[in-house]
Design a protein around this nucleic acid. Sequence first.
DNA 1: GCCGTTTTCGGCCCGACTGTTTTCAGTCG
Length: 654
Amino acid sequence: MSNNQELADRLARIARLQELLGFDKFRAISNERAARTVEGFPEDVIALSKDRAALLKIDGIGPKIADKIIEFATTGGIKELDELTAEVPAGLMPLLELNGLGPKTVRMFWQDAGVTDLASLRKIIADGSILNLPRMGAKAVEKIVASIAMIEEGDKRLALGLALPVAEAFVAQLKKHKSVKQIAYAGSMRRGKDTIGDIDILVATSDAAGVAEAFRTMPQVRHILASGETRSSVRAALKYVEPPPADGTTIIAPVTGPTVQVDLKVVPLESWGAALMYFTGSKEHNVRLRERALRMGLTLNEYGLFPDDDEKEPPHKRGIKSIASSTEEEIYAKLGFNWIPPELREDRGELDIFALASSEDDAAAETKPAKTSKKSATSKSTKEPAKGKKGPAAAAPAIATAAAAPRVLPRLIELADIKAELHSHTTASDGEMSIVELATRAKARGFHTIAVTDHSKSSAIANGLSVERLLRHIDAIREAASKVEGITILAGSEVDILADGRLDYDDEVLAKLDVVVASPHASLAQDPKVATARLLKAVRHPLVHILGHPTGRLINKRAGLSPDFSELYSAAKEHNVALEINAHWMRLDLRDAHVKGAIDAGCNLAIDCDVHYPGDFDNLRYGITTGRRGWLTPERCVNAWTAADLHAWLKSKR
DNA sequence: GCCGTTTTCGGCCCGACTGTTTTCAGTCG
């Protein structure tokens, strides 16, 4: 686990303990918010902790939390956390994970009924004494029992690549319903997160009952959890198709396999934009937008943007006309923003880019002045742009320096920008296609270049090539290149980075290759210091072009390496090595926050499909989404370069 | 615990839903 992740976990634990202990809830919220900030922070926070002033510049981090970060960096722990932990029975914390149980209820169980863990909660349910507690009726208990069952099944977040096809199938099916005016999936899926909790489908229709009925009766629906007039909720099968085995047969997951929760929400057509924004999130992004609305004398909810008149009843219920509601674009515009791509809506600087311009807009806004009771929420990052700083702090707080960036969001990478695949496997190692088939498929996608990069000798399990086989393979690639027109076929290798950082082939062999992708495949639980040295050695190797799946993580299966990313980024920039975003949905490695860090550090990135099977080209969308979440532009993605530029870069390392 | 272009105290985003209640607390997204 990375330092940032460990610190974020600790801060989040402090927040949860504070809630359980009945502290002021805003204190807990502050710790929780700091946890999310640290988690998404592109630089290693330990390195950043050497400069307290830089820490304090980060939005949401004040003196107390800065000290906790410094304490964690120097001692590896946080005393406050230990003290809070000692006050609460260890078994109580997992109860917070139960759906429908919040800190207030769990605290009440603990204080009033002596519940200390799941077992003692079960006991008061079994003997019925739970019914004597405040607000505990038969239905409430029934829900708790269901939540316990759910958590025992292991309710992990699902990889995007498993969930997205399910969502698309629902959308495609429901679109056929004639009454449907608008339909889209929203939530973290629309933002392109690497894992999702559930699928939110939004629909605007003139026949809510009919669409809900169609939704509940789709063939992949296994259970109906709730069904109302405007909301329905089901669990649907993941119709997950495995990559075909060698004999060409296709395995489809059985109907009893894993399921995912899908929620359908019916919204009024005139509120489509507001509802889509609201349900797309993120929560943090929405909070910032609503704070901004308040400063402009407006209020934003899922029905639209309204004048803020201080009445308690929501404006849409009083027939107040919205200022904007039907499209996302008009709502963002009224708030002084261009439309923000969903992948950026994480409150990681996407709103601050406009901050300088928007403070001028505030004065010119045609709406009434903000009320005195609602304080301005202008973030720290809108203060003076950081300038003239030296040392680690100068590069570190990307969030804090966002105001210094141009006032226009970058033009993010798109699927159509990709013109080259630089990481692919053939039957020579563990792929399914011949060189010619691989090249033909790449050409059909409009690519100008494909690099054939089979595994190196140490990857025995993947049928890695000995030096002799590699040399013959290079000849075969050259021959195929002369046969297939309209695409450049490059001879490459995905070379193992051995545990000590040496590469799996000698330099004279590597020098014969057009493209070297160096990737870690074994020893993926290494100590971070060792891992850093290992990857740095590969990046500094003069013949390496791309660092492949740098951490080796597998989503929900393997954490992978936790190198010091700041060092990795600066080495990659210095040695002109592209860092890979491996587009396979099981990897997505680098992940979004790392991409942002690499971009801020000035690195180039590669988005590659690591093609083994024909269908693997389709994983490109996940790599693109991950790149967009990391603010990747086509200029910084080697796969989006012209053939001339790409080939010149590759040759520059020969 | 953080924050500030009415600032160093007194606030802190918004609404739906649920289940328990007869007006609301707690949870969720």
